[in-house]
C-alpha cells in the first residue's frame, strides 16, 4: 500500500509518539505501563480540549490567541460565583460555557465583518479576558464546593487496576465528537474549504460568514470547557492561571501536523500533538535530574522540525503543481 502524501505529517506525529514511548520504556523502570498513558490524558485534559478548538481555527486559516485568558476567566467566574455567591455548579458551568462561546463569536464577527486579521482581534480578546479576571479578584479563590472536589477526585476504574479522571473522559469525548464534525459534517468540510481558499469558498456559494464566526465560537466554547476542567484539576480560580497557554496549544496543533496556513490537518494529529507534549514532560520527570525547563527546549526543537517538515512538503506540493 502506498502512503498518500497527505497523511505524512500525521504518520510522522504518531510514529514520534510511539518512539518516545518506547525510548521512555527502555530507559526508565515503571514507564512502560498503561497508567502512564492514562496519566498523559489526565494531566493534559484541558490542553487537549483547547487544542481541539484551536485546530478548527487554524484549519480555517485563522489563529486564536485568547484561549489561555478565557480559561483563566472561566476559572475566575466559576470560583467567584460558586464560592463567593453560593451559586449552584449546575447553573455556573453552563453559564461559563455560554460566556466562552459568546466571547468567541464576538471575536469571530469582528474578524469577519470588519475584515481584521484574527491575530490582532484575538490578541485584544486575550488582554481583555485577562484583565476581566482581575476585576473579579486579584487573588486566587480556592474552591471547596463538594461538586468540584468530587469531580477532581473521582476515578473511573479501568481493567487492570488502571483509572481515568472525569476530565480525561470529557476530553476524549470532545476529541471523538470533533473528529466526526471535522470529517462528516458540512460545517467541518466548510472549515477545510475556507482554509484552502476563502475567495473560492465564496464563489462556490459556501456560507463563509457563518463558518468563520462558528469556528471562533467553537474555540471560545472549548476554552471555557477547558477552563471548567481546569477548575476540577486546580480547585481554584486565579487570574494568573494558564498564562502563555495559547502558545502551548498552538504548538500542540502544529506538532499534530496541521498547517498554520490552514486547510490541511487532522484532529487525530492534534490528539497526538498533545500526547507528545505530555510525554516529553513525563520523560523529563522520570529523568529526575533535569529541570522542567527542558520541556520547553524539547518542544521548541520539535516545533522547528515540524515547521521544516511542513515547508518541505508544501514545497513539493507546489513543485507538483507545475507538472
Amino acid at each position: 500500500m502506498s502512503l498518500n502524501r497527505k497523511y505524512i505529517p500525521i504518520v510522522v506525529t504518531i510514529m514520534l509518539f510511539l518512539v518516545m514511548f518506547a525510548v521512555g520504556s527502555f530507559r526508565y523502570t515503571g514507564f512502560f505501563s498503561f497508567q502512564v498513558l492514562m496519566n498523559l490524558l489526565i494531566d493534559n485534559a484541558f490542553l487537549l480540549i483547547t487544542a481541539v478548538g484551536m485546530s478548527f481555527v487554524i484549519l480555517s486559516g485563522g489563529i486564536d490567541l485568547s484561549v489561555g485568558s478565557i480559561i483563566a476567566l472561566s476559572t475566575m467566574i466559576s470560583a467567584s460565583l460558586v464560592q463567593q455567591h453560593g451559586w449552584s455548579p449546575a447553573i455556573v458551568i453552563p453559564l461559563v460555557l455560554m460566556m466562552g462561546a459568546g466571547f468567541g463569536s464576538a471575536m469571530g464577527a469582528i474578524i469577519h465583518y470588519f475584515k481584521i486579521q484574527p491575530f490582532i482581534v484575538t490578541l485584544a480578546g486575550m488582554f481583555m479576558a485577562r484583565g476581566l479576571c482581575y476585576v473579579i479578584s486579584i487573588d486566587t479563590i480556592t474552591i471547596d464546593h463538594p461538586f468540584y472536589t468530587t469531580m477532581a477526585q473521582t476515578k473511573i476504574p479501568l481493567p487492570g487496576g488502571n483509572s481515568l479522571s472525569i476530565s480525561a473522559v470529557i476530553a476524549l469525548i470532545v476529541v471523538v465528537i470533533a473528529i466526526y464534525v471535522a470529517h462528516y459534517t458540512r460545517f467541518g468540510r466548510n472549515v477545510y474549504a475556507l482554509g484552502g481558499n476563502e475567495q473560492s469558498s465564496l464563489l462556490m456559494g459556501l456560507p463563509v460568514a457563518r463558518t468563520k464566526i462558528l469556528v471562533y465560537t467553537l474555540s471560545g466554547f472549548c476554552s471555557a470547557l477547558a477552563g471548567v476542567v481546569f477548575t476540577f484539576y486546580m480547585l481554584s480560580g486565579y487570574g494568573l492561571h494558564a498564562v502563555g497557554f495559547e502558545l502551548d496549544t498552538i504548538a500542540a496543533v502544529v506538532i499534530g501536523g496541521t498547517l498554520l496556513t490552514g486547510g490541511v490537518g487532522y484532529l487525530l494529529g492534534t490528539f497526538f500533538g498533545v500526547m507528545i507534549q505530555g510525554i516529553i514532560q513525563t520523560i523529563i520527570s522520570f529523568e529526575g535530574t533535569l529541570s522542567s525547563w527542558w520541556t520547553k527546549i524539547a518542544i521548541g526543537l520539535l516545533l522547528f522540525v515540524f515547521i521544516l517538515l511542513q515547508r518541505m512538503l508544501s514545497a513539493k506540493r507546489s513543485a507538483q503543481k507545475q507538472v
Binding site: Y192, A193, G195, G196, N197, Q199, S200, L203, M204, G263
Partner: peptide, 11 residues
C-alpha cells in the same frame, strides 16, 4: 480556477 486545492477532487 476557483476551487480549493486542499480538498479532494470529489469534495
Amino acid at each position: 480556477v476557483n476551487l480549493c486545492p486542499n480538498l479532494t477532487v470529489a469534495e
